[in-house]
Design a protein around this nucleic acid. Sequence first.
DNA 1: TATTAGCACTCGCTTGTGTTGAGTGCTAAT
DNA 2: ATTAGCACTCAACACAAGCGAGTGCTAATA
Lengths: 345, 345
Amino acid sequence: MGVPLNDRSQNILEAIVEDYIQTAEPVGSRAITKRHAFDLSPATVRNVMADLEEMGFLISPHTSAGRIPTEKGYQYYVESLLKVRDLPTEFRSSLEDDSRFAGKSMEDVMQEVGHLLSGISRYTGLVMAPRFNSTVFRQIEFVRLSKGRLLVIFVSESGLVQNKVIEPGIDFSQRELESITNYLNHRLPGMTITQVRERIAVELHEEQSRLNKLQKQALELSDQALQGDIAEQVYVAGTSHMLEQPEFTSPDSMMKIMRTLESKQQLIDLLDCSQAARGVQIFIGSQSSHAEIEGCSLIAAPFSGHKGAVGTLGVIGPIRMNYSQVIPIVDFTASLVSRILDRES
Amino acid sequence: MGVPLNDRSQNILEAIVEDYIQTAEPVGSRAITKRHAFDLSPATVRNVMADLEEMGFLISPHTSAGRIPTEKGYQYYVESLLKVRDLPTEFRSSLEDDSRFAGKSMEDVMQEVGHLLSGISRYTGLVMAPRFNSTVFRQIEFVRLSKGRLLVIFVSESGLVQNKVIEPGIDFSQRELESITNYLNHRLPGMTITQVRERIAVELHEEQSRLNKLQKQALELSDQALQGDIAEQVYVAGTSHMLEQPEFTSPDSMMKIMRTLESKQQLIDLLDCSQAARGVQIFIGSQSSHAEIEGCSLIAAPFSGHKGAVGTLGVIGPIRMNYSQVIPIVDFTASLVSRILDRES
DNA sequence: TATTAGCACTCGCTTGTGTTGAGTGCTAAT
DNA sequence: ATTAGCACTCAACACAAGCGAGTGCTAATA
């Protein structure tokens, strides 16, 4: 990224970013020399700071205040200066405490994970469950609700459960449904939902003749059941932590941020980016693509069982976020959830 | 409630409450005579207002401001003065638009209802799904996840689906599970979950001898599956509307209210009160019992299918809430959801 | 007797004016 | 190359003055 910085400049930039992360106040030359025992006078630091400002790493809110990092400043800090700390053992053990997840459904686990993320990081935790279409089909069940109305329940290999209501033209008896269920559950497991859909389409159109009535009904029913995308599930926890941040004290910004965190769709878009990646990803400020969320950074990581169901989790907070603390939290949590997913299957 | 008010005082109180609901500003004597064509001078109105203040219906924030209603004032207004308006047809038709709920699972319906409530009322919408223990059992399914780990899925008569993970000591085969499922699904439907639990306990202890191995295993498994309370489900929508209210502009109160709305448990406690009641209930300010939520009122109503699954929905907003608008919204929505529940069964 | 006009009074809000102090940039000395 | 010294800037705070909406009281009016 452009001009390389010499050691002294790096140290000072690091000090400024870290001080600002802690205090949320513009940091001045004197403050730096005091807190970090560089053997430099404030005047020297001032000169360096002026350089850093010229290079675009810092900015002064006004003449007589200290300086704060720009987005570029944070980026440089995260890429080159940041020392990722180990996850404190207290958190580690709190996360590894399996009893927390015992007897819980997958949804409840996701929700709990969200709360853990937000509780430990003291920012807002996000968990996006694996997109159902990419999960591996395990089992389907039909429940007859009333004349012509059926409840369909899918279970994925990773233990995720989804259900919807359909109204096929025909009113199946419980007996018929059992046969259909049986047929489908012997034929479909092992494929992803998307694959299942394709397979059904093929069989219905090209192999019509070879099927008996029951088989045809079964396929038609599951075709209908799988139609329409199943909405992504996002779990958000600790939104109020956002309001605790000094950068969001103004009522306006509070409303703005809360509205964004309320819109599941925006969060899905946000998390979708990290879906494909591997490992922890960091989006600083406007880097977070569809930047509805000004002034925020996102630290996200995908998780997945070995059967391939891929979800994303992360922490969202102000740009002035404690990166060195949050990154290991997200990292560890993602691998934790991956382990849980594996265990289920 | 104490001294009855004469017509003129009532009219003026009504005018003050309504003006204040609209403007959120203390209303003065002059403002009243202008907006509502009483044939009175400001001076007369002032006298009446002084009386109303003495009786505890009004209060002045300070000497030279107008007056605002006290909780008692709102209560009197709601009980005696309020004319509940009809639900505007636009909302009515928007709510009755069934396509909105087509193909959705019960959870999705609840969530959608929450959004409707908040969208139409412009306050925060709450929906509490029927307590699972009180719903009527319809079907149970077991899915073998891995060695020793089972996914249990319950479906209630009203179409609600719940699932959890259990680890019985034994590792059942898929075949065994099918038999067990079959046995249970022929014996248990028609009872509430609570009744099912009692029945199982009885059979396991008192009729041990009469059961064969499979039956015993089946009962033990379902006993374990039903152990532990299943958490209430609450859906909250439109929390950011709360921040739009002028009474919550201060950062402190914003944080307070958001924290409360984030805590599902507090909301459950809140909504639980109206569980038993019939029809719309109104809790004004500190009336809302476990009053963690200062300055808020709750309008809630239970809904239920004819099979008895009872949930609660409502709208929460500032005490200065538009009661005449929100009450019919909640009323209508509750009956709408009841209808949907019935349809499912 | 009920109502109203008139008036002095209260008090929060806005506006304007210093004052303070942290922090800067520049220059000259080291 | 570094640093001490110094003039300068500017947000933030505090204080005072003035405004104005609204009140309560009193005396006049229907």
